[in-house]
């Protein structure tokens, strides 16, 4: 027989926050990750050790809007909603088309993908290269945390039990002169968890690199990004010389330490990650 569970689904965000302030709860947005994580055998409901709070119906968490050059994305926007939203930058839309499949995209949320903090989280490399910030709200107010600080390790995030991630903010979303790529390598195009993923971001003025960022997924406990290595490329002109590319690839070779698991091997992951970096650096803009 199914066990009794306490579940809340408030109409308003302030009621939700008050409840979270009173009680440590498991938050469910789209549920596409948590339902698998807590899965039981067929016919037996998933087991949760805490009361549950549903949040994906809250309209405050589904807004997309722009203030100055910052793009605010509601944490409970589904991938499909982002695909259909005029403010979402084209590179993010192209990336979303490679994530999961229509049925998951109709349900899975950006906030959920972040809070799941999987080393292979699909949106994460892109959010890292966009310098995304996470907006957390509690009864005590709001706070902003950089995504690279928010995600601390596999399934570990810097969220207090009374907080909800309400928005993801992409600062200075400039399309002009910005080139963004996202590559995901998996066993199947749809619905596969990445063996390796990569996002590259480059802003150029004429041939000069003004800003360059890259992040690797599924090759470490969190996304791998190195601002020191990125800095070495700022001011260089495109196309980069082979020797310059070799130097950058060699530096990443030292810091990427993937693991063997059921999805892939460390050797494969490292080779592909470095090839993706080389491919990005060799692109003729």
């Amino acid at each position: 027989m199914a066990e009794k569970v306490t579940a809340y689904r408030f109409d308003r965000i302030d009621e939700t926050l008050s409840q979270l302030n009173r009680e440590d709860c498991a938050i469910i947005a789209g549920g596409t990750d948590v339902m698998v994580l807590h899965k039981s055998r067929r016919g037996v409901p998933p087991k949760f050790s805490k009361p549950i709070v549903f949040i994906d119906h809250l309209s405050e968490l589904k807004q997309v809007y722009q203030t100055d050059k910052d793009l605010h994305i509601g944490a409970c926007c589904t991938y499909t909603e982002l695909l259909e939203h005029p403010l979402i930058p084209t590179p993010i839309k192209s990336a979303i088309k490679t994530i999961a499949a229509p049925a998951i995209r109709n349900r899975g949320t950006v906030g959920g993908n972040i809070c799941n903090a999987s080393p292979a989280g699909d949106m994460l490399p892109l959010l890292y290269v966009y310098n995304a910030k996470v907006l957390l709200r509690s009864v005590n107010g709001d706070r902003f945390v950089a995504i690279s600080d928010f995600i601390q390790g596999p399934r570990r995030i810097q969220r207090l039990h009374n907080e909800i991630v309400t928005e993801i903010i992409l600062p200075s979303v400039l399309e002009e002169g910005t080139h963004v790529i996202f590559e995901k390598v998996g066993n199947r195009n749809a619905d596969a968890i990445a063996k390796v993923s990569f996002a590259g971001f480059m802003r150029i003025n004429k041939e000069r690199i003004e800003d360059i960022r890259f992040a690797f997924g599924a090759v470490g406990p969190t996304m791998i990004r190195s601002r020191e290595i990125e800095k070495k490329l700022v001011g260089k002109t495109l196309p980069l010389a082979d020797a310059e590319i070799d130097t950058i690839v060699a530096e990443f070779d030292k810091i990427i330490r993937p693991i063997d698991d059921q999805r892939s091997t460390a050797v494969y992951r490292k080779t592909v990650a470095l090839n993706l970096l080389r491919y990005f650096l060799s692109l003729k803009q």
Binding site: R9, I28, T32, F54, A103, I104, N106, R107
Partner: peptide
Amino acid sequence: SVFVNNLVQNSCLIPIGS
């Protein structure tokens, strides 16, 4: 797969509370 508000979704991932 079922339709939830006319959108195809996986019913194995949907807790009925939502």
